[in-house]
Computed example of a mutant assay.
Amino acid sequence: MTVLVVGASGYLGRSVVDAFAARGVDSLGTYYSNPIEGATRRYDFFADDPADLPLDAVESVVFAAHVERTDHDFETFAAAAERFVAAVRSAGPRLVYTSSAGVFDGSGSRYDEATPATPKSKYGRRLRRFERFVAAHDDSSVLRADYLFGRSRGSLDRRLARTRRLVREGRRVPYYADMWKSPCHVREAGRALAVLAGSDVQGVVHAPTPRTSAWAFHRAGMAALGERPRLVVPEPMPDDPTLHRDTSLSSSRFERVCGFRPRSVVRALRG
Score class of each variant (00 low, 15 high):
Ser199Lys: 11
Pro241Trp: 02
Arg14Cys: 15
Arg83Ala: 11
Ala57Phe: 10
Arg165Ser: 05
Phe149Cys: 07
Thr209His: 11
Val5Phe: 02
Asp44Thr: 01
Trp180Gln: 07
Tyr32Gln: 04
Asp26Glu: 13
Gly190Cys: 02
Leu12Met: 07
Arg187Gly: 00
Tyr32Arg: 10
Ala86Gln: 03
Arg187Cys: 06
Ser109Asn: 12
Pro234Arg: 12
Thr115Ala: 12
Asp178Ala: 15
Thr247Asp: 04
Arg110Asp: 13
Phe84Gln: 00
Ser9His: 12
Ala78Asp: 15
Arg151Ala: 04
Gly7Ser: 02
Ser182Cys: 10
Leu12Lys: 03
Ala224Val: 04
Thr242Ser: 08
Arg219Gln: 06
Pro54Ser: 11
Glu113Ala: 00
Arg191Asn: 05
Asp26Gln: 15
Ser121Tyr: 03
Leu231Ser: 00
Val17Leu: 10
Arg191Tyr: 10
Pro93Thr: 05
Val201Trp: 15
Ala197Phe: 04
His72Gln: 08
Asp178His: 09
Arg132Val: 10
Arg129Ile: 14
Gly170Ala: 14
Leu193Asp: 00
Pro262Ile: 06
Gly24Asp: 13
Val17Asp: 03
Glu255Phe: 05
Arg129Glu: 15
Leu225Ala: 12
Ile36Thr: 08
Pro50Thr: 14
Glu59Met: 02
Leu196Met: 11
His137Met: 08
Tyr32Cys: 00
Gly271Phe: 09
Lys120Ala: 12
Phe130Glu: 00
Thr115Val: 13
Glu235Leu: 01
Gly7Trp: 01
Val142Arg: 03
Arg69Tyr: 10
Ser199Val: 09
Val266Phe: 02
Phe74Tyr: 12
Ala65Trp: 00
Val167Glu: 09
Met1Ala: 07
Val61Asn: 03
Ala47Asn: 00
Val257Ser: 03
Val16Ile: 09
His72Gly: 06
Val67Thr: 15
Leu143Phe: 09
Asp112Thr: 06
Ser109His: 12
Thr209Met: 03
Ser121Leu: 03
His244Met: 09
His137Gln: 06
Ala64Glu: 01
Val205Leu: 06
Arg171His: 08
Gly221Ser: 13
Pro35Leu: 10
Ala81Gln: 00
Val88Gln: 03
Ala268Gln: 13
Arg267Leu: 04
Pro183Gly: 15
Thr40Glu: 15
Ala19Gln: 14
Pro210Trp: 12
Ser152Gln: 02
Val233Ala: 11
Asp73Met: 10
Val58Ile: 11
Val61Asp: 01
Arg245Ala: 13
